[in-house]
Write a protein that binds this DNA or RNA. Structure first.
Lengths: 173, 173
DNA sequence: ACTCAGCTTGACGTTAACGTCAACGTTAAA
DNA sequence: TTTAACGTTGACGTTAACGTCAAGCTGAGT
């Protein structure tokens, strides 16, 4: 046996894509992908000039797009990726970023509440619309939509105000 | 009793704010608030030229900012608000928008999964950082961070790939 | 009468995340 | 060899959501 312990699986048989296929895979444009590379978020290998994307880059782009969907900027994402891929060695910097990450995690949990509330509100809105569409199945415009909305959101409103610390601030002249 | 059935509570004693106080209340700038008004998302009353914001506008801005936090554009928000406040009367338009709202609700639920995954990943990242900071409490840089990350994300990776429909698409020449 | 705080309406500047060209190189098939 | 498909690097354009002035009104206090 020729000496080849812990052989790197960097072999040929790993999946890989050209930029167009890779872009199609995630429903983004090649331009966007090049842009992410410029920002240092992707580092595809090259074959005679052309970019070649493998599983590693697939994983990265998956995470990039997930974070983007949640409203993070590419700079935000880079702050995380640089740590993830070991580009940050300074202990102080590392500690600061970890603290930041914990704040992000906290804000993510708040975001979940936002989602719950918005999803519920939009569900109610759909119901109200359905009611309205049913009542006025012919073409008489008897019931004003505004009334129904008003009821629902008034109720809402008091809910929100109760646990809203803002509400003890300032009044007006 | 003077005739006054179902009296409107449009009275004086409702809370109200000037633009600066109102902005402070939500930690945004007066400019942003004027911008939202230009876009038709807020319609404060006026007192000798100056804007006056009441409970109604408070509720609206609450919802505007919540939607913004979730990545919706102001135009997106207006599409919902216009329905909510009865500005859309056309049945066809109304039906289309309701269908759209249901898609939004569905995508909100997908967003929750994004949050769960990202929060978990960032939690793991924090743990890894802590481990690293502990091991190298002096200043010897024995363990490479990259190794630890690699393990965690490789695992991840296979998880994701399993339920990823994308993964049966295209290969490469 | 003057000043000042707080508001108003333009109007132009800025940033992020690409879109959209133009001009050019490379490989494989006809 | 020519063409076609696919890639490359600039470089400039675009949109959303404001920021940042400038110039002017307005009502309360001195």
């Amino acid at each position: 046996m020729t000496a080849n312990p812990t052989a790197l699986k960097k072999a040929q048989n790993e999946q890989s894509w050209g930029i167009q296929d890779f872009a199609d895979l995630f429903e983004v444009t090649p331009r966007a992908i090049r842009f992410y590379e410029d920002k240092g978020l992707l580092t595809p290998s090259r074959e005679s000039g052309s970019r070649v994307f493998g599983l590693e880059e697939h994983g990265r782009l998956t995470r990039i797009l997930r974070a983007k969907r949640l409203g993070f900027t590419l700079d935000d994402i880079k702050v995380v990726m640089d740590v993830t891929y070991g580009l940050i060695t300074d202990r102080v910097e590392l500690t600061q970023r970890r603290d930041n990450f914990e704040k992000v995690i906290a804000s993510l949990k708040r975001r979940r509440k936002d989602i719950d509330i918005l999803a519920r509100e939009m569900g109610e809105l759909c119901s109200i619309i359905d009611d309205h569409l049913e009542k006025t199945a012919d073409d008489s415009n008897v019931s004003s939509l505004a009334e129904a909305y008003d009821e629902v959101f008034r109720e809402h409103f008091s809910h929100e105000m109760l646990d809203d610390p803002l509400f003890t601030n300032s009044k007006r002249s």
